Computed example of a mutant assay.
Amino acid sequence: MNIGDTVKTWQFKAHNKALATQKMEGQLVVIFPGYRMNPQTLFLTQRWLNHVTGADVVIAPNPDDSEAFSFGLNHVLPVQQFIKSYNASHIHIVGLSMGAVAAAQLAEKTEVDSLFLVAPMINFKSSLNAMYTKYSANSLLSWPMGWFLSAEDIEEVSELVLENANLTMASIDVQNKLAFSKASKINVFVSSNDDVVSGNFIDTPNQLGRKDVVVRRYNNLSHAEMLGLIDESLLADFLTDLTNIYVDTKDTSIIGKVCRDNAIECKID
């Protein structure tokens, strides 16, 4: 993954030895991806989570994986029905970026053990404006969502997208959905350096009217790094919260290593 002038690579090598975190057999983890997320990234995350936890891990369709764009909300009911038929002992929902909208919606309608939101898109208009600003500076509207970006009026464009999806801002209000969530615990992972959703989230969990929300903050991770979990601290925190078993950032047998510029010393034996 290219991060500015730095190349970051996540390396993980599966071993046959038992891991302390492999205690989730019979449990189900459902991941709602972000808009047009790289399938390879999702596949690697799925395989890694399955190996280090023992849980069954499934990936929901991308928010854009339908003819009529609806922020992924059209996938909530099918996933809800899938969960009911799966008969898992525990259910964990993960929402990445825009996937947070569908993830939070599902957790509002279904009792789940935990809800994890990574770099969640809390404010659509703010995220849309951030991406427009990021790419319009060099006339590169190459971001996948560039098809509805306009230099004329971001406010009008965002309202048009909602109108075409037959939705309102309230329909995709993740923060409000969290306030009424049926999840037993909620963990949110955000970065102040996120170039897409930075500053979107609540200042304190108490603003939701509930104190069981844990917000983990990082200072130097981009949106792409957050979604790819390309950071040892983020990987360790995510697994610790998911398994309720402490994971050390240096435990390469569980979280692997994040290598910078193909550093030789970063190789995993």
Rank of each mutant, 00 (worst) to 15 (best):
K17I: 10
G99I: 00
A107W: 09
Q207P: 02
D113P: 05
Q22V: 08
K177E: 04
C259T: 12
A100E: 03
L167I: 08
T240L: 06
S158T: 14
M1V: 10
S139M: 12
Q81M: 11
L229R: 06
I59P: 00
W48I: 00
S70V: 03
T21E: 00
V196R: 02
Q207M: 11
M131L: 15
E232T: 13
C259K: 06
V112I: 11
H15T: 14
S181F: 04
D248E: 14
I255S: 02
I59Q: 00
V118F: 01
V190H: 01
S192N: 13
T133S: 14
F82R: 02
V161S: 06
N193S: 15
I172G: 01
L42M: 07
N50K: 05
Y246W: 10
N62C: 06
W143P: 03
A137M: 10
N219L: 12
S142K: 11
T249Q: 13
G228P: 01
H51D: 09
A183M: 08
G99H: 03
I202K: 07
A236I: 10
F238G: 01
K177I: 01
F180S: 14
M145L: 15
T168I: 05
V190T: 05
E155A: 11
A151W: 11
S191Q: 04
N38M: 08
Y35E: 05
E163P: 02
R217P: 00
G4V: 13
V118W: 00
T204C: 06
L49K: 00
E163H: 11
A103K: 00
S233P: 00
E232H: 11
V215F: 04
N166E: 10
D269P: 15
N2I: 11
D248S: 14
Q27V: 04
S253T: 10
S66D: 11
F71P: 02
L96R: 05
E67H: 14
L234T: 08
D237T: 07
K134N: 10
V188A: 11
N200R: 03
L141T: 08
N220E: 12
I3K: 06
L235T: 08
F71K: 02
V174Q: 04
A68K: 15
S158L: 08
S191R: 05
L235F: 05
D203V: 10
Y135L: 09
S139A: 12
N219M: 04
G209K: 07
E225M: 07
F82H: 07
T252F: 08
P33G: 04
R216F: 07
K185F: 03
L229D: 01
M145T: 11
S66G: 10
N244Q: 15
S142C: 10
S139T: 06
Y218T: 07
S70F: 02
A179V: 08
V112M: 04
T133N: 12
T53E: 00
L140V: 04
T110A: 09
I93V: 13
F32D: 00
H92M: 06
L106Y: 01
T252K: 08
D56H: 07
N129M: 12
L117N: 05
L208F: 09
R217A: 06
N176S: 14
F148G: 06
V161D: 09
D64E: 13
R260G: 09
R47G: 04
I186H: 03
N176D: 13
L128W: 12
T110Q: 15
K177M: 09
I264E: 14
Q105W: 04
Q40N: 13
